[in-house]
């Protein structure tokens, strides 16, 4: 197979790991931790949209499910974070598969609309399931992660490292996946579902696999988010979060692992850099996005544009 393009990984993650030793203030470290969280989410969504070609507009729902699963397990069952993390990932992955079942046959733009609906439904259910989720007020007092006697606490630094480690692991898995038998089948299905079927690919199954992997990554990110904040509320998982993550994936280039990370870093840091423009911040941000997409519709590292996903055969 083609030369594996993973040479960038060790260096990139090494540099990312030592960043907190430079004299950043705690606000800047928090921005960095946030960027790492978004990068993790972008990697997960990239499996669904970039690898398998399923335009999903409700990805924040899996992030929410992961966060609430972590909160629930910690608050009600007293599970420590390190158990909540994999369990939340599994729960969110399973939820993504289950919610995928009824909509998996819908394609392109229609899938986008259906998943948007599902995303909103999850948020509304969470808001109204007061006995378990605390309703609009959310859940509070979620325990921070501990390593031995060291408590992660409220400082962003340990979370940044944790997220960077998870990011490195996920990036490595994603780039292996893309070159694997399943990854090749995803790419085939993304281009031509009928031809893929005639080659013996069970496209329904392949799509559910992508949803499962993507959902699990979101669940992982969600549980770190819950443990870091100590609280979860429904408004953290608004539709705009799904749109934001999708924008990161598209900016980086659909299907590119590097791209998803770079896209997430750019889009989560730019609004912070634009803070001095106050109310014009999001306007400038939007304009930048439009210009970028005009200049490079396939994204920074991508090969195919969103158009291809929408109108695949």
């Amino acid at each position: 197979m083609k030369k594996q393009r993973r040479d960038w990984m060790p260096w990139t993650f090494l540099i990312l790991a030592v960043l907190p030793f430079f004299p950043f203030n705690s606000y800047q470290i928090d921005v960095m931790a946030n960027a790492a969280l978004y990068a993790l989410l972008a990697l997960g969504l990239n499996v669904i949209v970039g690898f398998a070609g399923l335009l999903h507009l409700g990805y924040a729902a899996f992030f929410a499910i992961g966060a609430y699963a972590c909160a629930f397990l910690n608050l009600n069952l007293g599970y420590p974070f390190w158990i909540c993390l994999p369990v939340s990932a599994a729960v969110a992955g399973a939820a993504a598969v289950l919610l995928g079942l009824p909509v998996i046959r819908v394609r392109g733009d229609y899938l986008a609309i259906v998943t948007l609906g599902f995303g909103e439904i999850v948020r509304i259910v969470v808001t109204n399931l007061e006995p378990w989720t605390g309703g609009p007020n959310g859940l509070m007092g979620i325990g921070h992660p501990m390593i031995g006697r060291f408590n992660f606490g409220v400082d962003s630094r340990p979370y940044y490292w944790l997220l960077t480690a998870l990011l490195a692991l996920t990036a490595w898995i994603c780039s292996r996946l893309r070159r694997s038998r399943i990854g090749l089948a995803w790419a085939a299905m993304k281009e031509d579902e009928l031809a893929a079927g005639c080659l013996g690919m069970d496209t329904t199954r392949l799509k559910l696999m992508a949803l499962g992997v993507g959902g699990a990554v979101a669940g992982m990110a969600g549980s770190v988010f819950a443990a870091k904040q100590g609280t979860v509320t429904p408004d953290s998982f608004d539709f705009i979060v799904s749109v934001m993550i999708l924008s990161m994936v598209i900016l980086g280039g659909l299907g590119s692992v590097r791209g998803a990370i770079v896209g997430a870093v750019i889009l989560s840091i730019t609004p912070e850099l634009l803070r001095e423009f106050a109310v014009y911040r999001m306007l400038i941000f939007g304009l930048l996005m439009i210009v970028l997409m005009r200049v490079r519709p396939q994204g920074l590292f991508g090969a195919s544009s969103l158009k291809r996903v929408l109108h695949a055969r």
Binding site: I173, A185, E191
Partner: peptide, 29 residues
Amino acid sequence: IRLFGQQTVLENILTGTYVRTEAGLLDAV
């Protein structure tokens, strides 16, 4: 002709072996 245009010739032919192979998600990881 319905080839996967974005994929290389080799990748296209490898997709043909899909039915004769079994590796799943975990094998990739």
